[in-house]
């Protein structure tokens, strides 16, 4: 860290202050001619990278089954208690499946703990960031809205395998 300059350390020119003002003005003037960074949202959409944590989704296998085994670890680890899971019995090999899986997006804080704790790589933070609802009920997403084909999530899954 640069050493902090006290008033007594300043040169006469700096103490007069006017040259410093001119420097500041020059800087803003210079910036006025630089291109802007603004992304005009509804027309231009931000495409996040693989490290982005958007809406959590459930992985849907190629055969249409959910990968989730309803262990409830995501629900337990969720610091905002946004996830509710109700497990039930299934004849499939995994024995257990989520009869109901609900993420309350009004509670979700996008911390990604659910994704981190998931033993099955079944809950993944997607790139979806357009999450506006007009009522509380719409903010609670059930299995129908949560399941996303595994092919669409490959980028994030690869990222997780590399860095998690």
């Amino acid at each position: 860290m640069a050493k902090k300059k006290r008033l007594k350390d300043l040169s006469l020119l700096e103490q007069i202050y006017l040259p410093e003002i001119v420097k500041g003005l020059a800087l803003t003037m210079k910036n006025m001619f630089k291109p802007s960074f603004t992304m005009e949202y509804p027309e231009v959409k931000f495409e996040p990278g693989a490290s982005y944590r958007g809406r959590p989704v459930l992985v849907m296998e190629e055969n249409g089954d959910e990968r989730c085994v309803a262990c409830g670890l995501c629900s337990r680890v969720c610091p905002a208690i946004a996830i509710e899971v109700q497990a039930n019995d299934t004849d499939k090999e995994k024995e257990r499946y989520p009869e109901r899986f609900e993420i309350n997006m009004l509670r979700c804080i996008f911390c990604g703990f659910c994704e981190e704790v998931c033993p099955e790589e079944a809950i993944i933070m997607s790139k979806d960031y357009e999450l506006a609802y007009t009522n509380r009920e719409d903010g609670i997403l059930g299995l129908d809205k949560l399941l996303v084909p595994v092919s669409e999530l490959q980028e994030r899954i690869q990222f997780l395998r590399k860095y998690k």
Binding site: G72, R76, A87
Partner: peptide
């Protein structure tokens, strides 16, 4: 009780 609930819930 099979798969009804996690005990910590």
């Amino acid at each position: 009780f099979r798969f009804k609930s996690r005990v910590w819930d």
